[in-house]
Every structure is written in C-alpha cells, then in structure tokens.
C-alpha cells in the first residue's frame, strides 16, 4: 500500500527541526532513516500529517571519541556502525550487533537514533545501550537532557523522550582493558527480528568473569538486565546456576517469533554461547 496524503518539511539543523515540530504540533513525526516509520505509513498502521525530515542533518551523523566516551550521533546509520574502526575498538558490541539488524539495503538508511526512539522490544541496539551503560542525549527547546539507558526504555515502543524532544546522540563509556563484549541472537531467518538475543559485557579475570552485564532482547516488553544471573556469575557460581537464575530474571510472552517457553530455552542457549565468546572457551565456563 501507499501512505495517505501527508505534508513534509526538511529540517536543516536541530534548532530548525524543533521549530518545525512546534509549528506542526505533537502529532507530527520525525523522519530519520524511515525504515520503520515509512513501512508503518505504507501499511497505514500509522497516519501522520506532518513529517519532519531530519535525515539530511549532517552534524548528527558522527562518531567521535570524547575522552573516555564514544559519542555517536543519532543519524549514524547501522552500516556506519558496521564499518567504523572507532566502534570496533571502543564499543565492539555495536560492531557485532549492526550486521544482525535487518538486511544490507535497510542498514544503509536505518539510524541508531531511529532504532532507539522506536524501541522495538526485539531490536539489538536498545539492548546494547543497556549492557554498555550508555547515556541517551535528548534535545528539546530547553537544551540537552541526558538519560541513562536503564531509565530510557520504559515499555513496548515506549521511551523516556518527552514530546518535542529529539534524540541527538548516545554516549558510551569506552571498553576498558581486560573487559570483553559479545552479542548473539537466534532468529528464524537472517535479518529477521530475533526470537531472543543477548548482549553481554564482563571483565575477564584469572578468577573468572566479574562485573557481568547481561542485556536480553526479544524476551520482554523492553530490553532486560538479567540481574540474578549477573549476580551468580559475579560471585563465581557455575554457569548452571546462572542459567537457573534466568527463570526469575526473564518473563517472556508468546509472540509471532516464538512461544514463551521457547524463548526461555533460547535465553539459556544464548547465555552459554555468549560466555564462551567472552572467555574464548568452548563450554562457556569461565576459565
């Protein structure tokens, strides 16, 4: 199908985008990569009158190392994350996650800001933000506001963005020495949204993994930190105990991709595989 008639304006910078949004009212929509929004408009799932096209704002398509932080502009495309040396070095989880998102011809236009603002429960990048303790930077008329990732994803397609607030960047603490990151997902077909996925980070020490972060996606309304499993691993408990703890941490529902029982099972499979990735061992038991 085609979108219903709509009106359009192209923003030249962030200030212009915010002014256009005020002019059009709260029901107007920001158009970034369009890879979720235009699909919805074509299907007439969403009807919007005003579209504010921010896709040409070059100052939002940036990847910069600022001190101990990697700052990634909202219009950085999934394909940019795949190709960036800075991302590969300082936030390898994002470099691993990007090729898992959709297909090549979608990654050339889809943006990190769009993915985070859309907040699909099965999306890779929101879980990356949670696992890496990222800060989301929003800008409204009153200036910039910084929101911790754990406070940002509030529900299915729900975020902490206020009306008339643009997501302009994310800030990610750079990978510190001795720390590793890994991303895995299980999807029915390459490029589909995952049945279940896991972004993990940990200090790899001779005594085992420490300061473990496990952020699951596709198993809840928003990405979830598996706190009990994280605590079990931090305490040096066997992997089987961490797996058992996932039963309390996760509360998936059936969806089009998989049943809740299947998702619970896959979450455990993913844990073993991701621990093996982090430690470079076969079984996923910390060395």
């Amino acid at each position: 199908m085609k979108p219903a008639p709509l009106s359009y304006a192209r923003a030249s910078d962030v200030g212009h985008a915010l002014a256009l949004w005020r002019e059009a009212g709260p029901d107007a929509r920001i158009l970034a990569g369009g890879q979720s929004l235009l699909a919805g408009l074509n299907l007439r799932l969403a009807e919007v009158d005003g579209l504010i096209d921010i896709s040409r704002i070059a100052s939002l398509r940036t990847i910069d190392l600022v001190g101990d932080t990697l700052r990634i502009g909202a219009l950085t495309r999934h394909a940019d994350l795949e190709r960036s040396d800075l991302v590969a070095l300082h936030a390898p989880a994002l470099a691993q996650a990007a090729p898992l998102i959709a297909h090549p011809a979608i990654r050339t236009r889809g943006t990190i800001g769009g993915s985070l603002a859309y907040a699909d429960p099965a999306a890779e990048l929101p879980a990356c933000m949670l696992a890496l303790d990222a800060v989301i930077v929003a800008q409204g008329d009153g200036g910039e506001r910084r929101i911790a990732a754990r406070d940002f994803f509030t529900g299915v397609f729900e975020t902490g963005l206020e009306p008339f607030e643009l997501l302009i960047a994310v800030e990610i603490p750079v990978l510190r020495p001795g720390r590793a990151q890994a991303v895995r997902e299980l999807a029915r077909r390459s490029g589909d949204y995952a049945m279940a996925g896991l972004v993990a980070a940990a200090d790899v020490t001779p005594a085992g993994l420490r300061d473990v972060r496990l952020a699951y996606f596709g198993v809840g309304g928003s990405p979830v930190l598996a706190r009990a499993a994280m605590a079990a691993l931090d305490a040096g408990r066997p992997v089987a105990e961490a797996e058992a703890a996932l039963d309390d941490d996760l509360d998936p529902s059936d969806d089009l991709q998989a049943s809740a029982a299947m998702k619970r099972h896959l979450a455990k499979v993913l844990l073993r595989r991701v621990l093996a990735d982090l430690t470079g061992t076969e079984q996923g038991r910390p060395a």
């Binding site: 359009y8 192209r10 158009l31 369009g34 890879q35 235009l38 699909a39 074509n42 096209d53 896709s55 040409r56 394909a79 090549p104 011809a105 979608i106 050339t108 236009r109």
Partner: peptide
C-alpha cells in the same frame, strides 16, 4: 552509491 529499499525512501527525500 549504496543499495536501499525504494519502497522505504520518499522521492521527496532525494533532492
């Protein structure tokens, strides 16, 4: 220079 989905790109965006 890059492949895209023509159905998910508005002509209006391509000036």
């Amino acid at each position: 220079g890059e492949i895209v989905r023509g159905c998910l790109t508005l002509a209006a965006q391509l000036d």
